[in-house]
Design a protein around this nucleic acid. Structure first.
Lengths: 210, 210, 210, 210
DNA sequence: TATGAATGAGTATTCATTCAT
DNA sequence: AATGAATGAATACTCATTCAT
C-alpha cells in the first residue's frame, strides 16, 4: 500500500501550521494588536480554546509565525548557493527566483511588513529575525558578491552598500504591497519590477568589458 | 518690556501640536493600537480629558499626526525646486538636505514606519498620505529628473524606475531606524549612508561624458 | 417715570430662572442622567461655569426645577378656592382651568413625568414634591368635594377614591404627552380630552335629582 | 434515577432571562442611565463579560427587557377574550385578574414606569411598545366594551373615552408604585384599589335597569 | 483532543466639577 | 459676574485566557 496516513493523524500534525498560517494572514492584514484570537480560530476553522492546545498564547503565536515562516527559505537559499556552479549572476537570479517562489508569492510575503510594524513591541522576536533572517540573507548575498568579484565577473565595489542596493528594493516591494498598495489606482506589476531590478543589477555589477 | 500674551492663551494655541507630537512619538514607538491615550496625555503633561478638548478621539489624533506632519515639508520642497537655478543634481541634493533636516532629524522621521504599519487599518488616512505625500514627492523627483535630462545633465533613463531607485533607500533608512535598528550591535551612520547614496546617484545619473 | 429697570439688572435677576427653565426642558426631554450640563448652559446661552454661580451642581438644579416649578401654582389654586363663592363644580372647573393655563400649557407640564422617572433616585426631592404638591393638591380637591357634598350639590361618595378619579386622568394626560405621545400617528386633542373628563365628572358627581 | 441535563447546558438556556430579569429590576429601580452593567451582572450572579455573550450591549438589554416582558401577557389576554362565553363584565374581571397576576404581582409591574421614563430616549422601543402592548390592550378592551353594548349588558357610551377610564387607573397604580409610593407613610392597598375600581366600573358600565 | 461558556483586567470615552483669568 | 480650559472619576465595552465538560 503506497501511502495514505490516517486522515485524522494527518490533521493532527497539520494543525499547528494551519493555525499559524491563519494567524499570519490576519497579523499581516490588521497588525498584531488589532487581530483577535477569535478571528484566527475562525479562519482556521477551530474554536478559540483549541489555539491554546498548540500555542501558549497570542505572543507565542506571533513568535511561531515569524520563526517558522522564513527561516527555512533562508536555509534553502544557502543550500542553493552552496551547490551552485557557473555564473555568479545566475546564482543571484536563482536566489531571487527561489525567494520569490517561496516568500513573495505566498502568505509569507507579509512578514517583512509585519516585522517592521511590531519589531519594537517584540524585541526578542526582532532579534531572532535579525539574526536568523536578515543577517544570514545579507551574508549570503555578500558572499555571492565576493565570489563574483573574485572570479572577475563583477567589478570591485563596496560590499555592504551593494547588499543594500540589492535587497532594499525587494523589501520595499513587499512592504509596499502590504501597506500602501491599495491606494494606487493601477495594479503594480511585481514581476516586471523585479525584472527591471535584475537588469539594472546585471549592468551595474558586471566588470566593465573593454 | 514688550508685551506678553496671557500664558493661558499661549498654552491654548500650542496645545494641539504638543499633543500630536506626543502622540506621534508614542505611535511610532509602540504602534497605534498599543499606545494608550493616557500615556500620550502623560507625555504631553496633560490629563486624559484634555486630549478630547482638541481631538475627537484616538483616530482623529492619528489622522492629525499624519496629515499635519509631513505635508508642509513636501510643500517646502516643491518651493525649493520652483526657485532653483543651476545644476539639477545640486537641486536633488538640496531636496535631500531639506528633507533630512525637516523630517529625518525630527520626530517626523517615524511617520513612514507608522504609516506602513497602519495603512491597512486606516485606508482613508493612507489614501491621504499617498496623494499628499507620496505622489507629490514622486512627482517632484520625476520633474527634477526630466529637467536634468532635458538639459543634458542626466542621461536618458526610465523615470518611474529611477524615482524608485532614488526614494526607496531613503525610506528604508527611516523604516529601519524605527524597527530593526535596535537589533544591530553597531550604530548605523545615517549621514554616511546618505552620502554614499548620493555618490552612487551622481555617477549613475550623469550623462556619460565621452 | 413709569418703569424700565436697568436691563443689566433685570438680566441678573432673571438668570436663575432662565437657567432652571433650560434645565427643565432638557430634563423632561432626555431625563436627568442623559442631560449634560453643557447642553443646559448652551440652551440658556451661558457658559458651563456660569451654572455654578447660581446652583451648586446638577442635583441642586434638579431640586430647583421641581421645587420652584409647581408649588406656586398649588398655592394659587388654594387661594382661588379660598375666595370662591357659588357652585362647587364651577370651582372645580376654575381649578382645572388655572392649572391648565399655568402648568399644562407651559414647560412645567413635563414635571410629573420627570418626577415619576427620577423619584427613586432623588427620594428627598420626591418627598418634597409629595408633600408640597401631591398632598396639597389632593387636600384641595378633597375639601372641594366635601364642600360640594355638604351643600348638597354633589352626591355622597368615598372622597379618597374620587380624588383619584379626578386627578389620575389629568396626570396621565401629561405623562403621556411627554412619553408615548410621539408614537401615535394622530395628534391627541388635550382640550377635548379634558372637556370630556369634566363632563363625565359633572354627571358623576352631582346629587341625583329625582 | 431520571436523567438530568448537564448543568452547564441548563444554565446556558436560562441565562438570557436571568439576565434580563436582573436588568429589569435595576432599570426600574434606578432608571436606564443610572444603572451600571456591572450591577446587573452582579445581581444576576455573573461577570460583566457574560452579559455580552447574550446581549449586544446596554441598549439591547433594554430592548429585550421591554419586548420580552409584557407582550406574552397581552397575547394571553387576547386568548382569554377569544374563548370567553358568558357575562361581558365577567370577562373584564378575568382580564384584570390575569393581568394582575402576570404583571402587577411580578417584576414586570415596573415596565410602564420604565417605559414612560425612557420613551423619549428610545423612540424605537417606545414605538414597539405602543404597537404591541398599548394598542393591542386598548383594542382588546374596546372590543370587550362593544360586545357588552351589543348584548345589551352595557349602556351605550363613547368607546375610546371609556377605554381610558378603564385603563388609566391601572397604569397609574403601577407608575405610582414605582415612583412616589415610598413617600407615603401608609402602604397603599393595591387589591382594594382595584376592587373599588371594578366596582365603579360595574355600576358605570351597566345598562340602566329601570 | 476539542469546545465554548465564563471571566475580569484593560482602555477609550464622557461629563460634572473646579478654578485661573 | 462670567468664562472655558483643565481635570479625573466613572463606565461601557473588548478580548486574551481559563477550564469544566
Amino acid at each position: 500500500m503506497p501511502y495514505s496516513p490516517a486522515p485524522r493523524k494527518r490533521r493532527k500534525d497539520a494543525r499547528p501550521s494551519e493555525l499559524s498560517a491563519a494567524a499570519l494572514s490576519l497579523f499581516v492584514e490588521k497588525g498584531f494588536a488589532a487581530t483577535r484570537l477569535e478571528d484566527i480560530a475562525a479562519r482556521a476553522g477551530v474554536s478559540k480554546g483549541t489555539l491554546y492546545l498548540y500555542f501558549d498564547g497570542k505572543e507565542a503565536l506571533f513568535k511561531a509565525v515569524i520563526q517558522d515562516g522564513i527561516v527555512p527559505v533562508v536555509a534553502e537559499n544557502e543550500a542553493i548557493a552552496a551547490r551552485h556552479t557557473g555564473s555568479t549572476f545566475l546564482l543571484l537570479e536563482k536566489l531571487l527566483d527561489n525567494w520569490w517562489a517561496a516568500i513573495g508569492q505566498t502568505d509569507f510575503a507579509g512578514i517583512p511588513k509585519l516585522m517592521v510594524a511590531e519589531a519594537r513591541n517584540f524585541p526578542e522576536v526582532a532579534q531572532f529575525y535579525y539574526e536568523n533572517v536578515i543577517r544570514r540573507a545579507r551574508t549570503l548575498v555578500g558572499n555571492t558578491l565576493e565570489r563574483g568579484m573574485a572570479e572577475g565577473e563583477f567589478r570591485r565595489m563596496d560590499v555592504e552598500t551593494t547588499i543594500d542596493v540589492i535587497i532594499a528594493p525587494i523589501l520595499m516591494l513587499l512592504i509596499w504591497r502590504f501597506s500602501m498598495a491599495n491606494c494606487q489606482s493601477s495594479e503594480a506589476d511585481a514581476g516586471l519590477y523585479l525584472r527591471i531590478h535584475m537588469d539594472l543589477l546585471r549592468q551595474g555589477l558586471r566588470a566593465s568589458q573593454v
